[in-house]
Design a binder for these strands. Structure first.
Length: 216
DNA sequence: CGCCGGATGTCCT
DNA sequence: GGACATCCGGCGC
């Protein structure tokens, strides 16, 4: 198992300027960083991000592709804010806005590993959930952290935010990163904008959209 | 492990 | 009316 991935060092706020770049760069950069939720009892639920996907404004698979709407407003705002959307009638997914203000782009957080409050995460996900799948998938991640639409627009770089990005100094080398096509998208199905930690089993399994065109 | 169908709200054509 | 950045349980191998 990759050293350090399941342990936790001293935490500090994640710098906003590292989120202002192109979405694929930010998606790569967010691997190994921490998503922290302040719980009502004062504790922190800390999750190591192990899988991400980039969505650019000129990307037909992106919600921002058809322009600025009420739903996608946060994607066009300043970097480092949550874009939380509802899908398939029952699931929430959380993104981190990136690229400069005025450009609609974000990184979908697809999977993580809980480093603290694991019992609480398991309780939210259901006791039947398998260990490897606790936060392996974008809707499982929000479910385990108790996130929904009310968390849209949160500034993840504000030190006192109830949901925030942090770093504990873990450095993910390029050799430890696997890159490939995104999961379940019909448009731009072969663009390699999904990033994950290689050799970490707690990620979603790749599935191609059933109606995506055949691979070139 | 893989494939399949159902659940179920919002957005876009 | 159809698609959708999904998950789960059931069934077959």
């Amino acid at each position: 198992m990759p050293a350090g991935v399941r342990t936790l060092g001293d935490r500090s706020a994640f710098p906003r300027d590292e989120l202002g770049d192109a979405a694929d760069l930010v998606a790569r950069r967010l691997l190994g960083t921490l998503l922290v939720r302040s719980e009502e009892d004062g504790s922190d639920t800390v999750v190591r991000i192990v899988e991400t996907e980039a969505y650019h404004q000129t990307d037909p698979a992106s919600h921002s592709f058809r322009g600025r709407t009420a739903r996608t407003e946060v994607m066009f705002g300043p970097p480092g804010h949550t874009y939380v959307y509802f899908t398939y009638g029952m699931h929430w997914c959380v993104n981190v806005s990136c690229e400069p203000e005025g450009i609609g782009a974000a990184v979908l957080l697809r999977a993580g590993i809980a480093l603290t409050n694991t019992a609480l995460v398991r309780q939210r996900r259901g006791e039947r959930a398998r260990e490897r799948e606790l936060l392996a998938g974008p809707a499982r991640l929000t479910s385990g952290l108790g996130l929904d639409g009310s968390w849209n627009g949160v500034d993840l770089c504000a030190p006192a935010a109830p949901l925030r990005l942090e770093s504990d100094g873990l450095v993910v080398a390029d050799a430890g990163v696997a890159q490939g096509p995104r999961v379940g998208v019909r448009q731009a199905a072969d663009v390699p904008w999904r990033f994950r930690l290689a050799d970490v089993p707690e990620v979603s399994r790749y599935s191609r959209h059933p109606k995506a065109p055949p691979r070139p």
